[in-house]
């Protein structure tokens, strides 16, 4: 099933399929290892519901929901 990363709940896992962001955000996502094929687990949401924390490639990454919306995921 395909879903965007911002729609994931805490504890949900998935594989990155495609990045639909542009410019700065896209480049930043690539540099941080958010590329097709990477495994992502959503760890938690911040107190105010945003940003989110995920585990990717063995480390913790934080990004906003608006940025996570650009990450198309295959739910595992």
């Amino acid at each position: 099933m395909e879903k965007r990363l911002n729609e994931f709940n805490v504890g949900e896992k998935g594989i990155v399929r495609k990045i639909v962001a542009e410019g700065n955000i896209r480049r930043r996502l690539f540099d941080m290892g958010v590329t097709p094929g990477a495994n992502i687990i959503v760890k938690k949401f911040a107190s105010l519901g945003d940003p989110i924390e995920v585990t990717i490639r063995g480390y913790e990454l934080t990004l906003r929901k608006s940025e996570a919306e650009c990450v198309l995921m295959e739910v595992e």
């Binding site: 930043r28 990454l61 906003r64 940025e67």
Partner: peptide, 9 residues
């Protein structure tokens, strides 16, 4: 501005 950053252990 974007907020995509590492949270160190």
């Amino acid at each position: 501005p974007p907020f995509i950053m590492e949270l160190p252990a």
